[in-house]
Simulated assay, not measured.
Amino acid sequence: MKLHSPLLPLFQYLEQFHPLSREFMEAHEKNCKLIRVKKYKYVLSPIDNNASLYFLVSGIVRGFIKEGKKDISTWFSFGNEVIGAIRHPIEHSNHSMEYLQALEDAVLICIPYTLIENAYLAFPEANLIGRKLLALHYYAASERSILARIPNASDRYHKLENSKQDFDRIPKRYLASYVGVRLETLSRIRTKDVEQGFSTISKKLETESQVSTEVVSAYG
């Protein structure tokens, strides 16, 4: 592995699934490219040719679709993973209905689908890695599906909040569309949580104060 290769983050990520051959890495060095996308610019939109997957090196990217005048966030990526727009596995359309947008300045590695398909034929490790990546993406999609089916908006938000992702970095309007609520509703849920948190802390301090007073009285 080339220690100074711009593809090093991708190789390090893939090697957790299976060791990479020199030929595999050379093929990626030849066909992949590093791209930089400014905050709020599109990585991909429906007018672009949906010809690649992307490895997000740094920054945040969201996937979303448009429904009339509204945009609906469908997922967020915080980096160090492979992402891409919706693509039918058999009916290879040149375009996707999904947008990929950088929410922070982002650095990505572009991985052409033609390279991926050729790698499956040429390199045994590609099939093993592809199978494990597919399992990870299926699990993530199932988690999103479960979240969308929780009927109560507050419960949907709390399930999201309990995940290990740093959703505080996501603009609230995009988070609201992901949870399926209006921005005002999300603000009310968050405000209520803060108030309840302060209430819990106050009760704890009051209890501790009462215990201290009782202890002093007992030794007085």
Results as ranks from 00 to 15, higher is better:
A106M: 00
A51H: 11
V107T: 06
I86T: 14
E91M: 13
L100M: 08
A85R: 12
R62S: 05
L53N: 10
I65K: 11
K70H: 11
V82Y: 03
S96T: 10
K70Y: 10
S93E: 13
K66D: 03
I90H: 15
R87E: 15
A106R: 04
L56S: 01
L100R: 02
V57K: 06
S73I: 08
D71M: 14
N94T: 11
Y99S: 07
P89S: 08
N50H: 09
D48M: 08
L108T: 05
W75K: 11
K66S: 06
H92Y: 15
N49R: 13
I65G: 09
S73T: 15
E91P: 05
K66F: 04
S77F: 01
D105K: 04
L103F: 04
I65A: 14
V57L: 05
V82T: 08
A51D: 15
N94L: 12
I47L: 04
R87V: 13
Y54E: 01
K69D: 13
N50P: 10
A106C: 06
M97C: 11
F55Q: 03
N94A: 09
S77T: 09
E98R: 08
P89D: 10
K66H: 06
S73Q: 07
E81F: 03
G68W: 14
I47D: 14
F76V: 04
I60Y: 00
K70I: 14
K66M: 11
L56Q: 04
G59F: 04
L100T: 05
A51P: 08
S93L: 15
F76M: 04
Y54W: 01
Q101E: 15
T74D: 03
Y54C: 06
A85G: 05
F64T: 05
S96P: 12
A85C: 07
E104Q: 08
N49W: 14
I72D: 10
I90R: 14
L56F: 00
G79T: 01
G79E: 02
A102C: 00
A102N: 01
K66N: 05
H88G: 07
I47R: 12
N80F: 02
K66R: 12
V107I: 09
S52K: 06
I111L: 10
K69M: 05
I83H: 00
L53E: 12
A106P: 06
D48G: 07
A102T: 03
K69C: 09
F64D: 07
I47G: 05
E104T: 02
N49G: 07
Y54H: 09
H95N: 12
L53S: 08
E67C: 11
H92F: 15
I90Y: 15
M97A: 15
A51M: 08
S52M: 10
Q101I: 00
D71I: 14
D105Y: 00
L53G: 11
E91G: 09
L56C: 02
K70P: 05
F64E: 06
C110I: 11
S73W: 06
F76I: 02
I90K: 13
E104C: 01
L100D: 05
D48P: 10
G63L: 09
I47F: 06
E91H: 12
I60A: 01
C110M: 14
N50I: 01
I83S: 03
S73E: 08
G63W: 11
F55P: 00
E98F: 10
A85W: 07
A102H: 03
K69Y: 12
T74P: 10
E98I: 15
G63V: 02
G84Q: 08
E81C: 05
V61Y: 02
N80W: 06
G68F: 06
V107F: 00
L56E: 01
N80E: 13
Q101T: 04
